[in-house]
C-alpha cells in the first residue's frame, strides 16, 4: 500500500503530508512531480496544501491544467482514493472532481488556527475509522476557504451524505458550515483543514491521523 504526494511548483505542505504518512501512519509514501503523466504504482493520492503555481489567477486554477492532474482524474475515475487538502481541495474543485467553489474567507484575511470539526459521515474511505459525530480538532491555514455552492448542490450533498466534515464554529463563512466533501462515488475527498498537521502529540494532537488510518483501512479491505 503506497501513498503518492503530488508536488506542484508552489506546493508547501508536500513534506508535511509525506511525513504524516510515512512517519506517523507508518506507510510508504513517494512524491510525484507535477509534469508526470502517470502516477506509477501508488494506491492513494494526496494533493497537498500550498500555493500551486503561485495561485495566481485563482487558487488551483492553473494546477488543473498540469499533466499530473489528467492522471489524477483517470485514477479517480478508476476508483482510486484521492484526498485534496487545502490547496488540494481548491484544485479538486477547479478540476470539477468535486462540486462548488472556495472563495475568500468572510473576514477577507488569512486565518491560521486550530478549529473543531464534527465528522458527518463514516461511510467513506476517509472517515471509516472515525465515529459519526466525532469531534476532531484540526488546524486551518487559508485565505480562500469559504465553501460556496448553489442551494441545489448543497441539498444534493446533504441528501447523498457527502458532507464529510462540518465546522462547529464556522471560521470562514463556508455555507452550511462545510469543511470537507466527498464526490458521488465517495473515493475523492476535499477538505480545507489540515489532517496532516495533527498526527502526533508534538503537533498539538493526533486527531488528523484518523483520516489516514481510514484510508489505510479502506485500501487493506480492497486488496
Amino acid at each position: 500500500m503506497k501513498f503518492g504526494v503530488i508536488v506542484f511548483p508552489g506546493s508547501n505542505c508536500d513534506h508535511d503530508a509525506w511525513y504524516a504518512v510515512s512517519n506517523n501512519l507508518g506507510r510508504p509514501a513517494e512524491y510525484i512531480w507535477h509534469d508526470s503523466h502517470s502516477l506509477g504504482d501508488v494506491d492513494a493520492v494526496i494533493l497537498p496544501g500550498g500555493f500551486s503555481y503561485g495561485d495566481y489567477l485563482r487558487c488551483g486554477a492553473i494546477a488543473k491544467f498540469s499533466p499530473v492532474m489528467a492522471a489524477v482524474r483517470r485514477f479517480a475515475e478508476d476508483g482510486g482514493l484521492v484526498i485534496g487538502i487545502c490547496n488540494g481541495f481548491q484544485i479538486l474543485v477547479e478540476t470539477g472532481l468535486l462540486p462548488g467553489a472556495l472563495i475568500r474567507n468572510r473576514n477577507l484575511r488569512f486565518i491560521c488556527k486550530p478549529v473543531e470539526l464534527k465528522v458527518q459521515t463514516v461511510d467513506s474511505p476517509f472517515t471509516n475509522a472515525a465515529g459519526k459525530g466525532q469531534s476532531l480538532c484540526l488546524p486551518i491555514a487559508h485565505g480562500e476557504g469559504c465553501y460556496y455552492a448553489d442551494e441545489r448542490t448543497l441539498d444534493e450533498l446533504e441528501a447523498e451524505d457527502r458532507v464529510a466534515f462540518r465546522y462547529v464554529r464556522n471560521p470562514n463563512g463556508s455555507l452550511r458550515d462545510i469543511a470537507g466533501i466527498l464526490n458521488r462515488e465517495r473515493n475523492v475527498l476535499g477538505m480545507m483543514p489540515h489532517p496532516e498537521r495533527a498526527t502526533e502529540p508534538l503537533m498539538g494532537c493526533r486527531d488528523g491521523l484518523v483520516v489516514f488510518q481510514s484510508m489505510a483501512a479502506a485500501l487493506a479491505y480492497r486488496s
Partner: peptide, 11 residues
C-alpha cells in the same frame, strides 16, 4: 496579527 500567519506549516 499572528492568526494571519501560517505558523504551523512544516509541522
Amino acid at each position: 496579527i499572528w492568526e494571519q500567519y501560517d505558523y504551523m506549516v512544516r509541522t
